[in-house]
Write a protein that binds this DNA or RNA. Structure first.
Length: 507
RNA sequence: GCGGGAGUAGCUCAGUUGGCAGAGCGUCAGCCUUCCAAGCUGAAUGUCGCGGGUUCGAAUCCCGUCUCCCGCUCCA
């Protein structure tokens, strides 16, 4: 049985050292979490599994690690400056909060006109009106209240606060002089780093279409309401691919990537039937997207929530960032670019014509992936003796600790030194973390490692050192290996242990 | 931002009318222990989320604030 509440999982995470609240000793910082000793192993293993499958095992991929601090023009031409800032107003009566443009759209033409007149812009477009209202917030509030702007929730006239811009991008000062111009952004997605390096990568690798660039890294969004543990946070990590294809082949590649990514999640232990593919409705698409599939994982505690989005970004991004836009027959509607120094296009080898590739973007959340894996793996089960055990049924390649080496008794020097030697030998195999566990209570050690998902426990006992009272001398230099899921034990010769574990931990 | 709930040891939680800060589990040490949270002995662990106020005295009452959970709002 899975966790019944998110708190149950949060509690395990803190107790065992997977995930802690950010800035904990100062009362916490909303929307931030820190990965502890086991959490960092799990997260690293997940990222490594992604990189291996998406980069190393394909012949059409390159990697990248671009900087987090980003030139403001990157986010200007990407469209984020315009779309990642919402003007918000509150109704003091109903206590409801609205996006100003959404609210104005709901008004009757007469009311809207009255607001526009009061702002001195009788003929203006909605966008221009909103901009003016943000520039003069106090005047905007009195204009709205005088015009009788109503609350869509109850149809009654509201008492409106001045509109305030809510910027979802983190701005930061760059350089020693704090003036209007010397700021940059913390990237709101890793994708832009790939687009602005498109030409550099092409020049360095002589890739031909179709090919992709993969990147894992932090991104930052000033979410209004961080929620649900590490599901919605302000600082998070993405695993993103921008896959460049010829226009016209984009829809086919979009479908192919959907299948590739579903298969990958399945290999990580998220069953296909626990994921629903959402074909995002047109009106909900982000500004760059032609079509998007969201992979919605059925969290036991949250229901269906997104763990990955696979977007067809068309030629929007490269088209936005390229110079010479007018010669490239860009299909997406892009802002005129007067700053870029690079042509982000490729030449058709046959026709010699230059064109802007389309982009398919499988973008997965690392933190959401970790939460999904923990949710899926967390199992409470009743044992034959009536007791309950908690076991994390993580795939071995994701488990934070691969093998625990346990001396059966901790007050027998021969046993503990043998176990320590064995631990060091196994560690040298490069399987991942091997842990020397000497609680002196074998049952307790097993349960502890069940709870953190260690696939194998290797126990050194009296037989191992040839000091058994009843056993056969043939058991010298053998150990027991206990399987996490079945709790079954096998006697394995130490000389064969490396091969035994490598076979079962290989990924 | 709104409404509701909560915050006391690592975890789960008790704490009476305002009167010395508690339990279970876990952790650590010693003894014991020949395979599934065993036993015995001992120990450590607290800015009662934080700040202020009332009071002789505050975990407890009041004000402010932060964080978490649930429902709205929002969600590239």
């Amino acid at each position: 049985m899975p966790a019944e509440t998110l708190e149950e999982l949060v509690s395990l995470c803190k107790r065992r050292g997977f995930i802690f609240p950010g800035s904990d000793i100062y009362g916490g910082l909303q929307g931030t979490y820190d990965y502890g000793p086991l959490g960092v192993e799990l997260k690293n293993n997940l990222k490594a599994a992604w990189w291996k499958a998406m980069v190393y095992e394909r012949d059409d991929m390159e990697g990248l690690d671009s900087s987090i601090l980003t030139h403001r023009l990157v986010l200007h031409y990407s469209g984020h400056e315009a779309t990642f800032s919402d003007p918000l107003v509150d109704n003091r009566i109903s206590k409801k909060r609205y996006r100003l443009d959404h609210l104005l759209k709901e008004q009757t033409p007469a009311v809207l006109e009255a607001v526009a007149r009061a702002m001195g812009l009788p003929e203006a477009s909605l966008a221009a009106l909103v901009a003016q209202m943000l520039a003069e917030p106090e005047r905007a509030a009195s204009a709205m209240n005088a015009a009788g702007v109503v609350d869509p929730a109850d149809g009654a006239k509201g008492d409106w606060t001045p509109p305030r811009p809510f910027n979802m991008m983190f701005k930061t000062q760059i350089g020693p002089v704090a003036d209007e111009e010397s700021f940059g952004y913390l990237r709101p997605e890793t994708a832009q780093g790939i687009f602005i390096n498109f030409k550099n990568i092409l020049d360095a690798t002589s890739r031909r279409l179709p090919f992709g660039v993969a990147q894992i890294g932090k991104a930052f969004r000033n979410e209004i309401t961080p929620r649900n543990f590490i599901f919605r946070v302000r600082e998070f990590e993405q695993m993103e691919i921008e896959y460049f294809v010829k226009p016209g082949t984009d829809e086919e590649w979009h479908q192919r990537w959907l299948e590739i990514r579903l298969a990958w999640w399945e290999a990580q232990g998220i069953p296909r039937e626990q994921i629903r593919v959402l074909d995002v409705p047109k009106e909900d698409l982000s500004h760059y997207s032609k079509r998007t599939f969201d992979l919605m994982y059925n969290f036991p505690t949250l229901g269906f929530e997104e763990i990955e989005g696979i977007a067809n970004r068309s030629d929007y991004d490269l088209g936005s960032h390229t110079r010479g836009q007018s010669e490239l027959r860009i299909q997406a509607r892009v802002m005129e670019n007067r700053h870029s120094t690079a042509r982000l296009a490729v030449q058709d080898p046959e026709t010699k014509e230059w064109f802007v590739p389309f982009v398919i973007e499988p973008s997965a959340g690392v933190d959401r992936g970790v939460l999904a894996l923990l949710s899926q793996a967390y199992t409470k089960e009743r044992l034959p003796n009536g007791e309950e055990r908690v076991v994390l049924r993580l795939k071995p390649h994701l488990a934070p600790i691969k093998v625990a080496v346990i001396p059966l008794a901790k007050n027998r020097e021969e046993i503990t030194s043998y176990a320590r030697r064995l631990k060091a030998e196994l560690q040298a195999l490069g399987l991942g973390r091997v842990f020397y566990e000497d609680t002196g209570n074998i049952g307790k050690a097993y349960r502890r490692h069940d709870e953190v998902g260690t696939p194998f426990c290797v126990t050194v006992d009296y037989d191992t050192i040839g000091k058994s009272q009843s056993g056969s001398p043939a058991l010298k230099d053998t150990v027991t290996v206990r399987d996490r899921d079945t709790m079954q034990q096998e006697r394995v010769a130490v000389s064969e242990l490396a091969a035994y574990l490598q076979e079962r931990l290989r990924f």
